[in-house]
């Protein structure tokens, strides 16, 4: 590592650590990992069974991650995507291929602590082989300015009996502008759960467009969205499940709490063309539940404190 990269790496890792990232794992040879700042790969580590390749492309970074057939990883793969400057555009195109019967969990930390005008664009293709299991957990740490645009797109294809679960959470700072676009196609007996948790304030705008397409018989998918919006924040959530396979089961579950002048639109879409499929939805948008509020206030919490407890639970 040259001096400049080393310096940058150390600065990012410091943020990574204070964001709850596992620094030891990042430095360990036993963990597959990759650290990207801006459009530069600062470090990466493959293991015998998890091979990470990355290269610079014209407008960003291309990374390819392969988990070998039958390999069940005990250690998660740690990814750290950072953007330390106040301005800039990060574009990361990834291809993840979990081969047959493999199992892996990704923990991706996305860190934009100083963002005033930062764009983070992810373009992922995920292929989950027959019987393989992939969990992808994406945790965001933003700055206080709200100057982040997060635009993650994922196309996942899950083979027979496979599983793809993803979680998207903004842990700290202003959400900014978020535009999630996920689509998962499930084969026979495959499963998927897409979970999004966001707390939006100021003039944050959150868009989420998530689909689970239940192609295979007996496949099942859940799209779960939890949001709390304050001030003038807005959200537009589309959760779509499409039942094509016989005995496939899909469910869209969206709960949003709105306060102040916030606005939320949730459109659960359930579609089926197979009479043996079953797709359902529930969506609830409203202010903080009165009874929850009164219960906590009857224990001595002020209204603000009570709201924090309720929202904290919902987004936990």
């Amino acid at each position: 590592m040259n001096e400049f990269i080393k310096n940058e790496y150390e600065r990012l890792v410091k943020y990574y650590e204070s964001a709850g990232g596992n620094t030891k794992a990042l430095l360990s040879k036993d963990y597959a990992s990759m650290v990207i700042n801006g459009n530069k790969v600062l470090a990466k580590n493959s293991t015998k069974e998890i091979i990470i390749e990355a290269e610079k492309i014209e407008d960003g970074v291309y990374a390819h991650i392969r988990i070998k057939k039958g390999y069940k990883s005990k250690n998660p793969v740690h990814l750290c995507f950072g953007m330390l400057p106040r301005e800039g555009r990060q574009y990361i195109r990834t291809e993840i291929f979990a081969e047959e019967e493999s199992e892996v969990k990704f923990i991706a930390h996305c860190i934009f602590p100083n963002a005033v005008k930062v764009e983070h664009i992810m373009d992922s293709n995920v292929k989950v082989g027959k019987g393989a299991k992939v969990e992808y957990e994406e945790v965001h740490f933003h700055g206080k300015e709200g100057g982040v645009k997060v635009i993650p797109k994922t196309r996942a294809i899950v083979g027979e009996g496979g599983m793809y679960n993803s979680t998207f959470v903004i842990k700290s700072g202003r959400a900014g502008f978020v535009d999630i676009d996920y689509e998962v196609r499930l084969g026979e007996y495959a499963k998927s759960m897409l979970l999004t948790k966001i707390y939006a304030t100021g003039n944050d705008l959150i868009k989420a467009n998530e689909s689970v397409i239940l192609e295979g018989a007996h496949s099942s998918g859940v799209i779960k969205t939890r949001m709390a919006l304050r001030d003038k924040a807005k959200s537009e959530v589309i959760g779509k499940t499409i039942g094509l396979g016989a005995y496939s089961r899909g469910h869209v579950d969206c709960t949003e709490i709105i306060m102040d002048d916030a606005e939320a639109i949730a459109s659960p879409v359930v579609m089926a063309n197979n009479p043996k499929a079953k797709v359902t939805h529930e969506a609830a948008i409203g202010s903080v539940d009165k009874k929850q509020l009164l219960t906590l206030m009857a224990r001595g919490l002020t209204e603000e404190e009570a709201i924090d407890v309720i929202v904290g639970g919902l987004l936990k």
Binding site: R226, T255, D289, K291, Q292, L294, T295, M297, A298, R299, G300, L301, V309, I310, G312, G313, L314, L315, K316
Partner: peptide
Amino acid sequence: ARKGITLAFQEPARFEG
């Protein structure tokens, strides 16, 4: 409540998470 009064509702609320 801070003066020492509390109430347990007939149908208590549920809290997700």
